[in-house]
Design a protein around this nucleic acid. Structure first.
Lengths: 261, 261
DNA sequence: TAGTGGTCTAGACCACCGT
DNA sequence: CGGTGGTCTAGACCACTAA
């Protein structure tokens, strides 16, 4: 790993005029280093769950002070790309670890806790040509193939969420119903280890709708029952959308929880 | 402003063993300073919109380095208690400024933008004894008085949100329908300037429900129309709950937007 | 130009973890 | 114990804003 920063090696002043004048579009050193590290993560140089090099190590590699590397990593940690653990190191974020296991699941019970006894059942998994609205949201050319999943989430054996999921076919080649059945744990964990696609952030649009016959049947509620419709676009590195999810939530006993800062 | 930190004045080493051993429950210097600053904010030493003292100023007052004050303020800024502006100073966050005007409003249109043409109409404002569930959530003794507001939010003249709002009577003494009618802008702006209560964070619970006759009538939709029910608890300093809001959202053209990091 | 926040360095020491 | 992240200092210079 060696890279040219808009650099100041051998200058007398700390980071030199060169840094601010040569850069095509100025950004501070720590931000440049953050971008370099992000590329490494994206290229899979360090896999989810693994440790990245120590701060001092990175500092000498990049030829900057530890404080500068530190600030870069601080931002990566704030973005949830990386997790710091005192005394041990800094690790690539993973959807498989207990701590971040259901990072994107906002369902809570009346007490405000994550509901227990979760069970996921795959109802359907097939490859097909992307419907236009799906293609648009996933930024695919029309006619490209997508994987279409249908899944039922239950808690304590009570159906709660019916998800329809679309994934770019090109990224998820070997994804089949069998493969899914053989795996237990969060889907995002499977995606990251088996297909090398890490889900970084997501954007939810929430509406209320009435259950139609088909949905009502799967969720074991009466037709017309008000449901939350959560439409989610999930992004990987570079803000590239890689998953579209439409979830129907029964909110009799559970609710969608959101903290506003 | 002078305070005793678990301090290291006159010690040879940077922050000394004393800091870590004398403290009843250890917390780093910058965190202690953050707490001190938070108290000042809470006590209204600096009002919303005003500048707090500069970093160097605070550093000399507290007898620490600028870097330490800086880290304290960094966290205050991350918590949205304070806003940094390069070259100008650091300012107490305010719900009246354009930048944070509708910080807690998550409504978006199909394009993903904040909808325009917003209008707020107060339907009702009265003082009454708190219903038990309201009292519980606002941490009031049963029987204490609360202010009860009903409000209709419209966009481009189309009703979109019917809010029921409960506030602790003790904190909002002079709050009347006339006072509300005379004021334009976000409620949280009124609350902070007229009643000295700053809304810091909030917690939403979102469900889908069917509109009953009364609600349907106000929102100009058919009875039984699926609506979002957004139940919000809003907190001021010290995590003290000071507002309970139950909002019914029509989500035909608008939706509740949420970003997941 | 003076004052503010923003970046960067170099070096010290602390807290925590595994061996 | 050695190595990692976490805290703190002192001092320099840059970027931005307002007078």
């Amino acid at each position: 790993m060696r890279d040219r920063l808009w650099s100041n090696a051998g200058m007398s002043s700390p980071h030199s005029v060169a840094l601010h004048e040569k850069a095509p579009t100025f950004s501070p050193l720590y931000r440049q280093i953050k971008e370099l590290l992000t590329k490494r993560l994206q290229d899979g140089e360090w896999k989810p769950g693994e440790a990245i090099p120590s701060e001092v190590e990175l500092a000498t590699r990049f030829g900057v002070s530890q404080g500068t590397v530190r600030k870069a990593i601080d931002e990566l940690a704030a973005d949830n790309l990386v997790v710091r653990r005192q005394g041990r190191g800094t690790f690539v974020a993973s959807h498989r670890e207990a701590r971040a296991q259901f990072r994107f699941l906002r369902l809570r019970n009346e007490a405000g806790d994550a509901p227990g006894g979760m069970q996921s059942r795959i109802l359907d998994c097939r490859r097909l040509r992307a419907p236009i609205d799906v293609a648009r949201q996933l930024q695919l050319r029309s006619g490209e193939t997508v994987v279409h999943l249908r899944r039922l989430l239950s808690f304590e054996s009570r159906p709660a969420v019916l998800d329809e999921i679309w994934l770019p076919g090109a990224l998820f080649r070997g994804l089949t119903a069998e493969r899914l059945a053989a795996y237990s744990g969060p889907l995002y964990g499977l995606f990251e280890t088996e297909f090398g696609t890490q889900m970084i952030r997501a954007s939810d649009r929430i509406r209320a709708v009435a259950a139609d016959d088909a949905v009502a049947n799967e969720l074991a509620v009466a037709t017309g029952t008000p449901l939350l419709l959560v439409e989610r676009l999930t992004y990987t590195y570079q803000d590239r959308p890689v998953e579209l999810r439409r979830g129907f939530y029964v909110t009799a006993e559970l609710h969608y929880h959101n903290e506003l800062g």
